[in-house]
């Protein structure tokens, strides 16, 4: 049984890394870093899965196992950090474009 989630993670990360290594356009670089970050987020959140678990919310919860909430906190932090990095990279590419007239 092939584990599809880890294959997707590796696929996303390799696409992102190829984007950063071989593309010269600044916006493509920034978006490739975004893709790598999404791949790592997917890897982290898939670590918390418990078989047959439900969402980790306490109010009106049926009496079943819950999915582990720790990686959900980790990836929330990572999503915000990735947002800051992407915003900074894109604004820097705007400023470079203004001075150089080509991307």
């Amino acid at each position: 049984m092939i584990n599809f989630i880890f294959l997707t993670v590796i696929f996303l990360i390799i696409i992102g890394l190829f984007g950063t290594m071989f593309k010269k356009n600044l916006i493509k670089l920034a978006m490739s870093i975004n893709i790598i970050s999404n791949g790592v987020n997917l890897f982290l959140i898939s670590l918390g899965y418990r078989q047959g678990g439900i969402a980790p919310i306490f109010t009106n919860a049926p009496n079943l196992k819950m999915v582990s909430p720790t990686p959900q906190a980790l990836i929330l932090t990572n999503i915000v950090i990735n947002l800051a990095v992407t915003a900074f990279l894109l604004s820097l590419s705007i400023l470079i474009y203004k001075k150089e007239k080509k991307l």
């Binding site: 950063t20 290594m21 670089l29």
Partner: peptide, 11 residues
């Protein structure tokens, strides 16, 4: 001195 080479050397 472009970021493609930097990331390639890092990996």
């Amino acid at each position: 001195e472009n970021s493609n080479d930097y990331i390639f050397l890092f990996i």
